[in-house]
Nucleic acid binder design. Structure first.
Lengths: 191, 191
DNA sequence: ACACGGATCCTAGCACCGCTAGACATTCGA
DNA sequence: TCGAATGTCTAGCGGTGCTAGGATCCGTGT
């Protein structure tokens, strides 16, 4: 029994090691630098070991990193509205927290919202960390939505945030005017 | 002289053939299927010929396709506001046209706004087709912006559209509620 | 008409990618 | 102690972007 347990523990550790290594590598050199070969070298195992943990390969690894990201983003958003702001203040707090998160964890953000992970959104099988993040937004922004359907309202707000984050990150929006854009965004969604 | 000209004409034709083939291939099988080998086979030349036209490789080809896209999107947007709608009608017309364009030309849209093309936005050297598209938005939406800076207003509006388009396309937003989201968006930016 | 020279194009190959079959070792249970 | 099962590695497949260097064609000047 105990031997079995030890093995499972070791296996879980290695699993986590792969995810952490992939994340570090992605954050340091971008996702295109995260190859199974490099990953294998870093964790000091051969390539097939990685496929023992992630049969679907790279895509699944990205998904595992993304899942960590959703948990962290949810925590960040909750923290941002922990003291219960309402109306305009709530919108501003969430927007700032979201964009800060994207700016500070670019590779993580890409895994969550840009890359193909096979993760399902707004579905029966959507993982819990993902649900909770969206739930936090809905709970906080519901009162701001007015007559609009809270779900649709939050989706549009999130889309705007994602648009700002991703276009800024890819150099398509100049960072220079980020503050003005934030003001416009908050005005639009808090009004 | 004439021989020189004929050669240049042929070269230009082949250049365009590469771009068109890349676009077709991307639209049919996605950008990951656009490889220099497949491209070479389709145009019935060897790989190095492609590099003769696009020294920077795939990235530059994607950029050329994207440029076509900006011209087409600009035309679509102008068409959408050709009869001079104002206020809410203008916002709705632009949003609908933009999202339709993204939905109908997914690979093209990716080239323009998702993939790495090396194209510069909001810069001295930004290509004309790109400027004009943004210009159309600014010209139409300026009056709607109210007190806000028209540039920032348009950037946020565009971000929201891009967020909706890209999250929908990657399966992160359910298509089911697209109409509701459009309503919310227009309400927010036309109010 | 012909040989030359430069432009043009292709063959072949590099290093790397994701992924996997099959050999090998190691460890467990009988 | 021995067979089986588990675990890991080596080696390799077909693919990628990209390029060096040789062959070939074609316009040009004699």
């Amino acid at each position: 029994m105990s031997i079995q347990e030890r093995k499972e523990r070791e296996r879980a550790q290695r699993h986590q090691l792969i995810v952490a290594t992939a994340r570090e590598l992605a954050e340091a050199q971008g996702w295109e630098a995260v190859t199974t070969r490099r990953l294998a070298e870093r964790i000091e195992y051969s390539q097939p070991v990685i496929y023992g943990h992630f049969p679907d390969g790279k895509r699944q690894i990205v998904g595992a990193v993304a899942l960590e990201g959703f948990a962290e983003l949810t925590a960040v958003l909750r923290q941002a509205v922990a003291d219960g702001p309402a109306g305009r203040a709530a919108v501003a707090a969430l927007a700032t927290a979201y964009l800060d998160f994207a700016e500070r964890n670019p590779a993580l953000y890409d895994a969550m919202f840009l890359l193909d992970t096979g993760l399902l959104f707004a579905d029966e099988q959507t993982p819990a960390p993902l649900r909770e993040g969206f739930g936090t937004l809905v709970a906080t922004l519901g009162p701001v939505a007015g007559e609009a359907d809270p779900g649709a309202f939050v989706e549009v707000f999130w889309s705007a945030l994602h648009g700002l984050a991703s276009l800024t990150r890819s150099g398509r929006l100049p960072r220079r005017l980020a503050a003005q854009r934030l003001t416009v965004l908050v005005d639009r969604f808090a009004g």
